[in-house]
Structures are given as structure tokens and as C-alpha cells.
């Protein structure tokens, strides 16, 4: 029944968001995006300066829901097997037993994804795409829900391995937290003067509720016209001068799903153009690869997507 299902989706979201906001103040926009990404079934990349609360957001999100959470800190000496797990020979049984790596969890926080070598990065990204891990010829499926929050620092460039552009597609959206306003920062100081508020977070949504949240987005309606609009936006990125690699149909899919998720969060039963426009930059910009010439001319991917959104006639 759509009526009750949708309202329950909204209430679930509200509960989780309120929970997170107890810890993360002044970041309601980022929380909204993160939850939309989560509900839409995609993964998020948070690129932000150090200390803005990326890890806290992931942890709080995980703790608000009754699901498992693991964290990996990427370092240059990390092996792919440190992520996926290893088969270890058990001398007693004379068999190889598979020990699961940290990837077998519901929410996986990957800190500083650009610190590990490209081989390790691709191991993670392949697993994210296929939702399964192949070890010694055996396929081990990942959990459901499976949600990766990856973080990276834009400031440090020494000793980092930037994610290959073709792999950036795996992340549904990229967002940033940014610094909060003065009052909010003061409030953070107040809140953390005695312990960390995250300790007080208790789960407010069960595993079942979370799964139903994800199912409900399929019930959200999107009109043909808006699908055309999404495809027009994504196609336009391929024709912009200075863009070496435009957005793929994966981007259109991600945009549609995330828009539906956002709709659900807002309590609407159909997608409106405003939802699509709100998400366009976050979903599309990180997938674009700019020509170095264009980059040195001052163009950024966000700029390109913003211009496309402003310039494309929107269905009214």
C-alpha cells in the first residue's frame, strides 16, 4: 500500500536524521545527501578537509541503524587481501578456511581512500561493483544492505594515488561537509566538553526498516519527461569542450535512483525537477574528467555541471 509505505519511509528517515543531528550540528544538507545516497543504494565519496567530521558522520549513521559497521584506514602498504580477507590454511582440518575481511559488513567506512596503491583501490571498487568477492575460485557475496562511505583529503597531494577517473563512476555521489558556522562550532565545543555525544547514540531503526526503506524507493513515481530531462543533462556533459570523459549512463541511473530516494525522504510520491536539480552536481560532477588544458584555464567539473543545469530548459 503506497500510502502507509511512503509515510513510513519519511518517518524512518526523520528518525535517523534527527539522531545524526544530535551529533553533527549544522550539517543537515550533507546528512540529507548522505541518506539519499544510502537509500538509493549507491556509495558516497566525501572529499573534504581534515577534521570536518567525515568519520563521525559515517559512524553516527551506522550507529543510528541496527546494522554492522566496519572501518578501514587506507595506507600505502595495504594489501587487497587486507580488505577482502584471506584463506588461511587450517593445519588441523587440512583445509583452507576463509577469514572474512572488513568488507563483509553493512556500512564500510574507508578512510583516505587515495592513500592506498591503485591495486588495492581497484580491489575495493570491484567488490563494490559486483557485490561479491572471489577468493580462490569461490564467490562470497557481500551483505545487504552494503554501503561504502569513502573519504579523501584534497589538500595532501604528496604520496597519494588519486582514484582513476574510470572508477569514480562507482560512487553514486560525491559531497563535502565543509566548516560549520561560528555558533554551531561553539555548540560542538559545548557538546563535546564532557565526552563525545556519539557515545549516546542508540539505534533508532531496525534492519528490517532499513531494508524496507530501500525497497520503497521503487514505488516512487518518475515521469517520462523527467527521465528525458535526466538523460539530457547527462548527455550534455559529453559534449562540453574541455571535458575528456563525460558522464556515462551509470550517472543517469544513479541520478534517478538518488532523486527517488530524496523524494521519499521529503515524503513525496513522485519526483519533481527540483529534486533532480538539487542532486545533479553531487551525482555527476565527480564522474567528469577534464582536459588538463581546461583545468589550467580554471574550469572545474562542478562549474561545468552547474552551467549545464542552468542552461538546459527544465520541464516546468
Amino acid at each position: 500500500m503506497p500510502g502507509t509505505g511512503l509515510s513510513s519511509g519519511r518517518t524512518i528517515y526523520r528518525k535517523i536524521a534527527d539522531n545524526i543531528e544530535k551529533v553533527m550540528r549544522g550539517q543537515s544538507g550533507a546528512i540529507r545527501l548522505a541518506l539519499a545516497g544510502f537509500a538509493g543504494g549507491g556509495h558516497i565519496l566525501l572529499e573534504d578537509c581534515p577534521g570536518t567530521g567525515k568519520t563521525t558522520l559515517a559512524k553516527t549513521l551506522a550507529r543510528s541503524m541496527d546494522i554492522t559497521f566496519k572501518r578501514i584506514q587506507f595506507t600505502p602498504d595495504l594489501l587487497p587481501s587486507d580488505i577482502t580477507g584471506v584463506s588461511i590454511f587450517d593445519p588441523k582440518e587440512q583445509v583452507f578456511r576463509f577469514h572474512q575481511g572488513p568488507i563483509f559488513t553493512n556500512i564500510l567506512l574507508v578512510d583516505e581512500i587515495n592513500r592506498a596503491s591503485p591495486r588495492t583501490q581497484s580491489a575495493l571498487l570491484e567488490a563494490m561493483a559486483e557485490r561479491q568477492v572471489s577468493i580462490d575460485g569461490q564467490l562470497h557475496p557481500l551483505e545487504n544492505p552494503f554501503f561504502v562511505i569513502a573519504t579523501q583529503n584534497p589538500v595532501e597531494s604528496h604520496g597519494t594515488y588519486p582514484l582513476p577517473e574510470g572508477q569514480m563512476d562507482r560512487f553514486a555521489l560525491q559531497s563535502r561537509l565543509g566548516y560549520v558556522s561560528t555558533q554551531e562550532e561553539v555548540a560542538i565545543l559545548t557538546a563535546q566538553s564532557h565526552g563525545h555525544p556519539i557515545e549516546a547514540i542508540r539505534p533508532c531503526a531496525t534492519r528490517q526498516e532499513v531494508l524496507s526503506l530501500r525497497q520503497q524507493i521503487d514505488d516512487v513515481y518518475i515521469s517520462e519527461e523527467l527521465k528525458h530531462y535526466i538523460v539530457t543533462l547527462v548527455k550534455a556533459t559529453r559534449a562540453v569542450p574541455g571535458v575528456r570523459l563525460g558522464a556515462s549512463p551509470r550517472a543517469s541511473l544513479a541520478l534517478m535512483k538518488t532523486a527517488k530516494a530524496l523524494c521519499l525522504i521529503d515524503g513525496a510520491d513522485f519526483v519533481t525537477p527540483d529534486h533532480i536539480q538539487e542532486l545533479a552536481v553531487a551525482v555527476i560532477a565527480h564522474r567528469l574528467a577534464l582536459d588538463p588544458q581546461a583545468r589550467f584555464a580554471g574550469r572545474t567539473a562542478r562549474q561545468v555541471v552547474e552551467e549545464i543545469v542552468h542552461g538546459t530548459p527544465v520541464p516546468t
Binding site: 600505502p76 602498504d77 594489501l79 596503491s117 604520496g159
Partner: peptide, 14 residues
Amino acid sequence: GVRLAASIGNYGEF
């Protein structure tokens, strides 16, 4: 390894 390699880890690539 690379000069200015990451501060974590000190030998080339695994």
C-alpha cells in the same frame, strides 16, 4: 621509493 612518499609506510609498494 618516491621522495615525499606517504608518511605511513616506508618501503615501496607491496
